[in-house]
């Protein structure tokens, strides 16, 4: 089987992936933590010419990534980041994964230690739809983008955009860019205050560096 036909590169690029890719300097060394099937890494290699590595918890994800020609090791963010030397990457990316880690704070600290910069994207639990589900219906939200019930979800540490900003403060991360994407994947206008981002941003994407 030819892996190029198995993983066509002409599929539409996800808006959060596009945004992350725009934050990465061409030719950089990149570690994607929780890289899934390798779609983001493949995009970064194709369009930004990065030297990319991945960590992925599922064997299927590893196999799919390896078949794309990516270098991906089976492992998890909580256990394996500790083994990476300081400053070994230009960017460490955590794309839609922080909510599934056991120790989000430690993971973020390791990312800032291993990489000169960190990029984190995550679903915003402060989005109005989610508030509506929880506030009015009184049930844990199950949405199209977050389809799991509370009892079988891998997502154990949801946060809102404001929660994440507070964590960045606590671990001494400096925000270089912060973007919220609305439900259609469009950036929320920059001029609006934080509470608007927190209400209308479905995804937060942050570019961070050590202070």
């Amino acid at each position: 089987m030819d892996a190029t036909t198995a993983f066509p590169d002409h599929l539409p690029v996800r808006s959060d992936h596009r945004l992350v890719a725009d934050m990465v300097e061409p030719g950089a060394r990149v570690l994607d933590v929780g890289c899934g099937d390798g779609a983001l890494l493949a995009l970064l290699m194709r369009e930004r010419g990065v030297d990319g590595r991945g960590i992925e918890i599922s064997r299927e994800g590893v196999s799919q990534s390896v078949a794309r020609g990516l270098s991906v090791i089976q492992g998890d963010a909580d256990a394996d980041l500790a083994d990476y030397p300081d400053d070994s990457f230009d960017y460490v990316i955590l794309s839609q994964t922080i909510q599934a880690t056991r120790q989000p704070r430690q993971v973020l600290e390791h990312m800032l230690r291993i990489g000169r910069r960190a990029i984190v994207s995550f679903p915003n639990f402060g989005h109005w739809r989610i508030r509506l589900e929880l506030g009015l219906k009184g049930r844990m939200p199950v949405t199209e983008k977050l389809p799991y019930s509370w009892y079988d979800t891998p997502n154990i540490h949801f946060c809102t955009i404001r929660d994440f900003v507070a964590l960045c403060d606590e671990v001494g991360a400096q925000m270089e860019r912060a973007v919220a994407l609305n439900a259609s994947g469009e950036p929320v206008r920059v001029s609006v205050p934080w509470w608007v981002w927190n209400l209308f941003g479905e995804n937060g994407v942050f570019l961070l560096r050590r202070r």
């Binding site: 590595r53 064997r59 590893v62 390896v66 990516l70 270098s71 090791i73 089976q74 990476y84 030397p85």
Partner: peptide
């Protein structure tokens, strides 16, 4: 081995098969 290869900056993939 994988950790050593990572530390050496090598291109490495790893899978643990069930």
């Amino acid at each position: 081995v994988v950790h050593a290869l990572n530390a050496a900056g090598a291109s490495v993939s790893f899978v643990e098969i069930e």
